[in-house]
């Protein structure tokens, strides 16, 4: 089992130090080899991944009613207070595209 640990970390948006790369890689190999025992289970005739779903197949909907949210005070203010960087009531982020 070959794991491209650098690509995996990039996809997961996580940086790994060189020392960690080898450690995580070895751990993943052990874990993947353990979970691979599922190969021996006969799952023919089952439709995945919906076979394992935990909820009913009906759609569950609700009214999008502001009263359900039990808001006291200014919600935008409360939420903005948790944002690391804000500017004039907006959440501030770096450019998505390089200038």
């Amino acid at each position: 089992m070959e794991i491209d640990i650098e690509r995996l970390a990039l996809l997961a948006r996580i940086k790994l130090a060189d020392k960690e790369k080898e450690k995580f890689k070895q751990e993943f190999e052990a874990i993947l080899s353990y979970i691979s025992q599922l190969e021996e289970v006969d799952t023919s005739g089952l439709e995945g991944p919906s076979a394992g779903r935990m909820t009913t197949e009906e759609n569950i909907t609700r009214q999008d009613d502001p009263d359900d949210f039990n808001v006291t005070g200014d919600l935008s203010e409360i939420l903005l207070k948790e944002a690391p960087l804000t500017h004039k009531g907006f959440v501030k982020v770096k450019n998505v595209f390089a200038k």
Binding site: L38, S50, G52
Partner: peptide, 21 residues
């Protein structure tokens, strides 16, 4: 991320959902 990635999804995630059933 690994078990959901292209090429491994069927062998891991999809298989595990069937085993869950």
């Amino acid at each position: 991320t690994y078990v959901l990635s292209a090429g491994y999804y069927d062998a891991y995630y999809n298989k595990a959902q069937k085993v869950r059933a």
